[in-house]
Amino acid sequence: MVRPYGDTTGDGMVQLSFTLPLPHDKRAEGAALQLAGSMGLEPAMLVHAKGMGPDFTFFVVYGRVNHLVDVSAVQVVEREYPLLSAKDVNQALRSRLRRKLVVVGACIGTDAHTVGIDAILNVKGFAGEKGLEYYREIRVVNLGAQVLVPELVDRAGAERADAVLVSQVVTQRDAHLTNTCEMSAAFREAFPAARRPLLVVGGPRFDESMTAALGVDRIFGRGTTPAEVASYLVHALAKGSP
């Protein structure tokens, strides 16, 4: 069991900022404290309040929460595969596939942020690790941004892709979720189950436990490195999935 930590073990201190659609006055400050109280901050300190135009006020609140966190009850997706070096990935692919592994990557929908897919695919890589293009036994086809789902399905078929990597950064109106569902449905429709490429999505706002709901084989969240993706691909192909 743990509590939030301010400057003393067990003090339970948190900070919070929010806006209320009220003009800045005493009543608005009272309303902010009421909200903090309802959220379990007791006592709550209103440390900053600032009017933003005639109709809104911004607040910063510090306070103590009495909630306890039961660490033993926390559920996370643990990595289900061993992390391999680039050399081991290449070796495993060479012995198992006897050809290059084909990965097709794209940002789909209206998302123009290629930063995620490029971090995983480009030689340049991410966090000091080289991207999948650097792996001798992986052939990478990076389709870039704003790729239409039918185009992605066609290219995956034409390139005989073993895996399709999709990155989604824009999350306005849950675009990342609807786009992913659309993508996975299109692949299920276009390919027989045995020949469907592995579907992998990544992005900063995905919940890694939602694979079934989104119809994909694996979800990668914030901070994923190319080696993790490469190791997963080796692992998944060895399992014979999908």
Binding site: T19, M52, V169
Partner: peptide, 13 residues
């Protein structure tokens, strides 16, 4: 940036 589309308070800050 990269978290949410800007909130009113983000713009003000």
């Amino acid at each position: 940036e990269a978290v949410v589309t800007p909130w009113l308070s983000d713009r003000d800050l």
